[in-house]
Amino acid sequence: MADLIKLNGLQRYYEVGGETVKALDGVDLIINHNEYISIMGPSGSGKSTMMNMIGCLDSPTDGTYEFEGEKVHEMDDNQLASIRNRKIGFVFQTFNLLPKLTALRNVELPLIYANIPKDERLELAEIAMDKVSLTDRMHHKPNELSGGQRQRVAIARALVTNPSIILADEPTGNLDSKSGVEIMDVFDELHNEGNTIILVTHEAYIAKHAHRTIHILDGRIEKDAQNKTTKQRKQPSKKKATL
């Protein structure tokens, strides 16, 4: 099986006011299936660009990016849209739910662009809502939900297409600590179910949920290491999953 993600000499330069900003400056990285990764770095380090790049929202200036063997760096806009739709689930810091749609309709959204018939869409969306334990809030609009609930809707939306990878950008950044813990529990559980998860964060205690932490500085990978606490963390989540 091909590597899930393979970055090779990935560069992303921006022209800002005549100056070249090297947001990513030669990144080599391999991510396998069912990994649980956190990406850390101070602001301006390039971690957001990295996240956008992995999420196929952006195209590299130079270097190669293969996603399950598909050459992302050669794709046009429509192919990128398709790979985002089928293979990637996004979870954002600010949730990014559409305020006029109910929770269920928000979750359904990616399936619309996957051209799935309506009945099937609603069924899949309900299953996803069930995974984040929000079946009783399906017909509420985002402004009728708490922050933690909104983020769980967003996670359900990320899950609904059964993607190869879930990308979460500061998923607890806008939440109080209690909701933050709940959300991290959800991610832990999703990982235990076999999902691949990448968290972008600058909080060490969030990063510790992951099994592997990548530190980025000035557009390069500074440090890439397995977390020591991995095994201890796995236990409680597994117990929870069986409840």
Partner: peptide, 16 residues
């Protein structure tokens, strides 16, 4: 604009 961003992130093509 934001809605368009969200739609694109979850897979909306330019055409749609």
């Amino acid at each position: 604009t934001k809605e368009i961003g969200v739609r694109k992130a979850v897979g909306a093509t330019q055409g749609s």
